[in-house]
């Protein structure tokens, strides 16, 4: 590594960060988060077990619960809480691209006409008759 550190800005801690510093001394926050993650995992398990036959609420609830878990890990364990804006500049576009890519795949692979729902002519070669 070369002269990286020489030109780095050193920013003093804000009061909120200083407060967080005192908090960190005990590991309570991390264990609290772990407990929350435990509850969410159990919640997901029960949710999936008892709503397995109603796909709408199942997917909605599970996506919500999973996002909450992922957000907790990212925010507290990955220290996004303490990071500065540039980190969000790095992962923000990636998440946006991920969203755009997945979204734009839907018209071609999901929003398809149902092949079984289409009226099939009784014998091939004969044009389907107009209904009515």
């Amino acid at each position: 590594m070369t002269e990286a550190d020489a030109s780095l800005p050193i920013v003093p801690a804000t009061p909120a960060q200083a407060a967080a510093a005192a908090d960190v001394e005990s590991h309570a926050p991390y264990l609290k988060i772990l407990f929350a993650l435990f509850l969410l995992t159990v919640g997901e398990y029960l949710f999936a077990r008892f709503l397995k036959d109603s796909p709408g609420p199942l997917i909605f609830g599970l996506v919500l619960l999973a996002s909450a878990k992922a957000a907790l890990v990212a925010w507290y364990f990955m220290h996004l809480k303490y990071e500065r804006f540039w980190v969000f500049l790095v992962i923000g576009p990636a998440l946006l691209m991920a969203f755009i890519l997945t979204l734009l795949l839907f018209p071609d692979f999901v929003m398809l006409p149902d092949p079984l729902g289409e009226p099939v002519p009784a014998t091939s070669g004969e044009a389907p008759r107009p209904a009515g």
């Binding site: 691209m97 755009i100 734009l104 018209p107 071609d108 929003m111």
Partner: peptide, 21 residues
């Protein structure tokens, strides 16, 4: 450049709504 890739696929049978986008 990230939201134009489908212009290589106009003839691929891609959803026409995507084609216009």
């Amino acid at each position: 450049g990230f939201i134009v890739w489908g212009h290589h696929m106009f003839q691929s049978g891609m959803n026409p709504a995507l084609g216009a986008t």
